[in-house]
Design a protein around this nucleic acid. Structure first.
Lengths: 356, 356
DNA sequence: AAGCATGATGGAATCGTTTCCATGGAGAAG
DNA sequence: CTTCTCCATGGAAACGATTCCATCATGCTT
């Protein structure tokens, strides 16, 4: 419980000034003689500079914040591991927050990070651009991973927007995905959802499936849009359903989908929690996979192989995604970074069969 | 990008001294008139006290550290969520580190936390007591979760220790589990491994199984000991095998076990990663669960139900464990806390069958 | 009415670091 | 030999909060 040595102690013991010690320790210029002495004394006193003093002086906390909706979503855990893997060698502490998918909690956590002067942040956002504006305004360096915040409220009662969407859909084009950080100008690292979903839908089509459903969760809007695009007009909107984030709600959504539309023959789940729910709901309703219903799940997770049949998945590199995002946030010395889109891969296992 | 208002700005704008502002904001005494004015000004300037200044002054960083071996182990993710759930309402930031099960990395991360003056820590330890001694000596408040650090080196070449172990085993007693923090005097929150394992073994025995194996990972020594105790002498040590932490190594261990001992009829996996490996290895070797081999897995995770058959598990409350540990670490205002042992529950699903 | 207690208030020290600036000495160039 | 340059060095000022302590006003007691 002895208290730690400060730079002053080291200076005194080495018979030099504190400035010199600081310089030696942070690679400034110093004569070899003093450098050696200071180093020796520091080692002997087991001196470790206090991040507190440094941070205060430099008006910023080192380290990077990490905000995810839910760690028990294996994909987010993978992503977090990636961030940690990048931060560790850099000696940067990672401050973790889990938002539960709730924009309000997200907002609070951003506030907390701000208070801590954590000025670099990797986030899987839950809130919309409005939620994120304060962080940006405060000068945080933010990198979004896996998703982008939804655009401004985009009220349901905005007929113009809806019309545009329709038009685009009828043309077989995706509604323009929120342009990466147009409003916010924030770089991001995301998977190529469009290609991933398209590949999956084509694959299912190739197996003869006509009625394909999309089961999404919060933040899966881009995937849903990609799905609509891949399916092509006319989109049967009853086949695009969303859960709200909890496992229960995902299960309810899946179960509701299966029950309300017994005619569907294939499901694309927008994330592993949704995939899990789909398997469970199907089993409960005595639907057999893949005989009665085919299933493709977004996210490759270790347990996908454990299911029987093992799940066919759209793999996205969660760990890489986290790593790259952390890299971006660490490297951006103030200058803008380019966004990154990582490839997805359709891994065919056993959860899809021919349409009967 | 405007810089944040400081306490000085508020003081100036309110026409009072900084001391008064500080007092008002931290609940000290002040006249209603000034209090009101200061509050108004603070709100208007959107003032948020900087944790940096406060921490430096108080010589401690708020917040709590969290060290786990691997977040993609779903149990650790649950535990982490528990810690976060407790820390969030308290407004405490959580600094996360993942050690990969490597004592050396763990040591480095402890050093990093020390540097950050994070003085409260919840840890699922990987290293032994020697690894943890520095943290304790430095005055950190540590709470171990899920496991305790292994006792001192307990060198393989220490015949005395080995002999004692043998003796105890022959007596059908578990080698005394490292007394919770005897050497280290650190409180902990763990599951009742002994009861959990015993129940599982009895259950398997009840199904007629004679040759039961234990498949463990790093940190599962207490569970292995409990297993040995539950099985009773003589323990067939070939049936107690360990992986080193990675999924590959777990798979190798499981596969090796099945191949070297085709006579075994049931396996207790010491954790969900091991359970996953066991299912995979069994499938690869064309062993059917539960017809050819019965399986009980420690940890209840959402995907346990997805396997077919759904896995019978020893459930331990991961989220609670994290929550309680965080509570302990937050509440201990310097004074010692009592360790907590949480109950386990055998959840019978479909992965165990009668011995044939 | 004078002295005393009480409570609000602001100045200043403090925490441990980095960094600006002034100083001083040594070597080089004239 | 003088002057100029360069570099190592240490003192001191930040950074933004908390907190001790002195000051001052007010109201009460005697």
């Amino acid at each position: 419980m002895e208290k730690r040595a400060t730079i002053k102690d080291v200076a005194e013991a080495a018979g030099v000034g504190v400035a010199t010690v600081s310089r030696v320790l942070s690679g400034g210029s110093a004569s070899p003689r003093t450098r050696e002495r200071v180093l020796a004394v520091a080692a002997q006193l087991d001196y470790r500079p206090s991040a507190l003093g440094r941070n205060l002086r430099q008006r910023r906390t080192g380290g990077i914040g990490l905000l995810v909706p839910d760690l028990t979503d294996t994909f987010h855990a993978q992503l977090a591991e990636g961030v940690l893997a990048c931060a560790r060698p850099a000696g940067e502490p990672v401050v973790l927050g889990s938002t539960g998918g709730d924009p309000e909690q997200e907002s609070e956590l951003i506030g907390m990070l701000l208070e801590q002067s954590v000025d670099r942040l990797v986030a899987v956002p839950s809130g919309d651009e409005e939620t994120w504006a304060p962080a940006i305004r405060a000068g945080m360096t933010v990198v979004f991973a896996d998703r982008l915040p939804a655009g401004p409220p985009a009220a349901d009662d905005d007929p113009a927007a809806a019309a545009v969407d329709d038009l685009l859909l009828l043309d077989g084009l995706a509604p323009a995905p929120p342009p990466p950080g147009r409003a916010l100008d924030v770089p991001s690292v995301v998977a190529d959802d469009r290609a991933g979903i398209r590949t999956a839908v084509r694959y299912l089509r190739g197996l003869g499936h006509k009625r394909i459903a999309f089961l999404g969760g919060p933040g899966h809007d881009r995937r849903a849009a990609a799905f609509r695009e891949a399916v092509g007009a006319p989109v049967d909107e009853e086949l695009v359903v969303f859960g709200t984030g909890s496992r229960d709600s995902a299960y309810a959504a899946a179960s509701g989908l299966f029950q309300s539309r017994p005619d569907l023959s294939a499901v694309v789940a927008g994330g592993n929690v949704l995939g899990e729910a789909a398997v469970l709901a199907a089993r409960e309703l005595d639907l057999r996979v893949p005989r009665d219903v085919s299933l493709v799940m977004y996210d490759d997770v270790p347990w996908a192989e454990l299911c029987s049949p093992p799940l066919t998945v759209i793999a996205q590199p969660g760990r890489d995604m986290g790593y790259r995002a952390a890299e971006l946030v660490l490297r951006s010395g103030g200058r803008r970074q380019r966004s990154v889109v990582l490839p997805t891969e359709l891994i065919i296992r056993g959860s899809c069969g021919p349409h009967r």
